[in-house]
Structure formats: structure tokens, C-alpha cells
């Protein structure tokens, strides 16, 4: 019996050793976490930018494997003006904050909407785009004013979106038809199950552009939110650098050029002034 125990111990030891070694080996590659200042980024020669890789037309990868989009256009300029290479990190909506808080990226440029809750977790630079809600409806019966909706008119929303929250809070009398996916909401509108569809204005504008016979009656509803670059909380040098950069870019109408290069195909020229924020100044 004694012998057997000894055998187990002998087996257990290398196992524990192997696990510890594995963890330590991982540390070997570690750099100190936390944010990097502008000087540190310049010194390293690479800025790490977290972007979306599957949100056409803001951040996506084209058929040649290159990052493209409205956010990327700005990222490329930031890299150029910092004089460093760019390492893109593909992020998901749910992990954007974590990437910044652990210093795994220097900047997030992933269609990041400025909200009060997020402001406590990260530092936002000046905004470069507006977002709001929008309402799209068939062109033969455009809904351009919510107060004119009839008693039995129902509005289509996707569950869990800001549109749903907004209508529940501000228009409790309007009947909502809730769908789980973009595709089912789209079908519902096409089958005229509801009189209009409320969603992010970028989504409804793009929808009306692609589908003939639909018009965005209300292009901007509710509180206007903005989209801005974000850095790790407390990274003042980088935040100030970004703010100066965005202000300076306003003078050359950089974001209008960005819109024309990346968003024009999706949203058309008429929404340019509504969506673009130039030089960090919102009206």
C-alpha cells in the first residue's frame, strides 16, 4: 500500500511541474500590462488598434484580406501620423472594453458608441460619427411622424436593440412587433406586418438604399449618440494626441473624405452631413 502511494506521488509531481512550467513559459512572453504612452508606442514602432473585422462598411476585410472601412480609414491615418506600423486586432462587440482595460490594444476604433456607462470604463476621444435611431417604411405610405400613427399601426423592432428600449420608454402607446433577427424583421416589413421598421439609422438608411420602394421617413430619432475612438482609462498622452489629431483632421475635411471613400456606396450622399462629425464638433 505504501509503495502504491509513493507511485502516485511520483506521477503527480511531474504533472504539477509540467503545469507550472506551462504557466511560467507563458509568462516568458509577457510584457507589462496597462496602457502604453504615445512615446512608448512610437518607440515600439507599432500601434495596436482593435477594430471590427466583420462590420461592413465600418470595419471589415475585403476579398484580398485587407482591412477596409470607415474606422480603418481613420486607423490608417493615425498610424501614418504616429509614424508607426499598425497591428489590427479583430474584436467583438462584447470584448472591446476588456481589450482596452487590459492594455491588449492601444486604441479601439470599432464603431464604439459613447455611453455614460462605458465612459466609466474607458476614455473616449473626440467623436467622428453620429448615430441615432431611424424609421423606414414603404414609399407609398411613408411614416414621417410617430404622432400620426393610427391606433392599430404596429412598428417593427428587433428584440434587444436600442430601438426597442427607446420605444418602450418614450412611446409606450405604440404597438411593437418584435423579431429576433434582422432577417425576420426584414421579411415582416416586406410582408407589411407592420407599418414601419425602427432600427439604428445607419441600418435603415442602408436598407432603403438597397431596396427600392422604401423610404426613411424619420432619419434621426431619439438622442443622438456619437461614435469615438477609445483608449485605456487614464492614458492621457494618447487621448490628448488623438483629440489634437481629430481636431486637426477637421481642417482638411478628413472625415468627409472618409465618408465618401467608404460609406457613400451604402448610405448615399444625402446623409453625409448627418452622419459625419468633423473635427470632433457635434452641433
Amino acid at each position: 500500500m505504501k509503495k502504491r502511494k509513493l507511485l502516485k506521488k511520483l506521477i503527480a509531481l511531474p504533472l504539477i511541474a509540467a503545469m507550472t512550467a506551462g504557466i511560467l513559459a507563458g509568462c516568458g512572453a509577457s510584457e507589462s500590462s496597462g496602457f502604453r504612452t504615445v512615446d512608448q508606442i512610437k518607440q515600439s514602432g507599432t500601434v495596436r488598434i482593435g477594430v471590427f473585422s466583420d462590420k461592413n462598411p465600418f470595419g471589415y476585410i475585403d476579398e484580398n484580406g485587407e482591412y477596409q472601412g470607415y474606422d480603418i480609414y481613420l486607423a490608417e491615418r493615425i498610424g501614418k501620423d504616429l509614424g508607426v506600423n499598425i497591428e489590427y486586432v479583430s474584436t467583438e462587440a462584447a470584448s472591446r472594453t476588456e481589450f482596452l482595460q487590459t492594455g491588449k490594444v492601444d486604441i479601439i476604433l470599432a464603431n464604439f458608441t459613447v455611453t455614460d456607462q462605458r465612459k466609466e470604463e474607458v476614455d473616449f476621444a473626440l467623436p467622428y460619427m453620429n448615430v441615432a435611431l431611424g424609421v423606414v417604411s414603404p414609399s407609398d405610405k411613408v411614416v414621417d411622424d410617430l404622432s400620426k400613427l393610427g391606433e392599430n399601426d404596429e412598428v417593427i423592432v428587433i428584440s434587444g436593440t436600442t430601438a426597442e428600449t427607446y420605444f418602450t420608454e418614450n412611446y409606450p402607446d405604440i404597438k411593437l412587433q418584435k423579431y429576433d433577427t434582422y432577417a425576420s424583421a426584414k421579411t415582416a416589413l416586406e410582408n407589411k406586418n407592420g407599418v414601419a421598421w425602427a432600427n439604428d439609422n445607419t441600418e435603415v438608411i442602408a436598407y432603403a438604399m438597397q431596396n427600392e420602394g422604401y423610404t426613411v421617413g424619420i432619419p434621426s430619432l431619439g438622442s443622438e449618440d456619437t461614435i469615438a475612438p477609445a483608449v485605456t482609462k487614464g492614458n492621457e498622452t494618447l487621448l490628448n494626441w488623438l483629440n489634437d489629431e481629430i481636431t486637426a483632421l477637421g481642417e482638411e475635411k478628413f472625415f468627409h473624405a472618409d465618408y465618401e471613400a467608404t460609406l457613400m456606396d451604402t448610405y448615399g450622399a444625402e446623409y453625409e452631413d448627418q452622419l459625419v462629425v468633423e473635427g470632433g464638433k457635434t452641433e
Binding site: G50, S53, D54, K55, N56, Y60, I61, D62, E63, Q68, V89, S90, T91, E92, A94, S95, F99, K104, Q210, D265, T266
Partner: peptide, 22 residues
């Protein structure tokens, strides 16, 4: 693992779908 930024086959698939959604 796409959640922590590794681009594996599913993520590439989503990238291709989204890049061509129009």
C-alpha cells in the same frame, strides 16, 4: 476563440459574408 481576437475558420467565414452582404 474569435471572442479574444483569434481569427479562425468561423470568423473568416463571417468576415467574408459581411464584406459581401450588399
Amino acid at each position: 476563440i474569435m471572442m479574444i481576437g483569434v481569427v479562425e475558420v468561423m470568423k473568416v467565414g463571417q468576415q467574408i459574408i459581411e464584406a459581401n452582404r450588399m
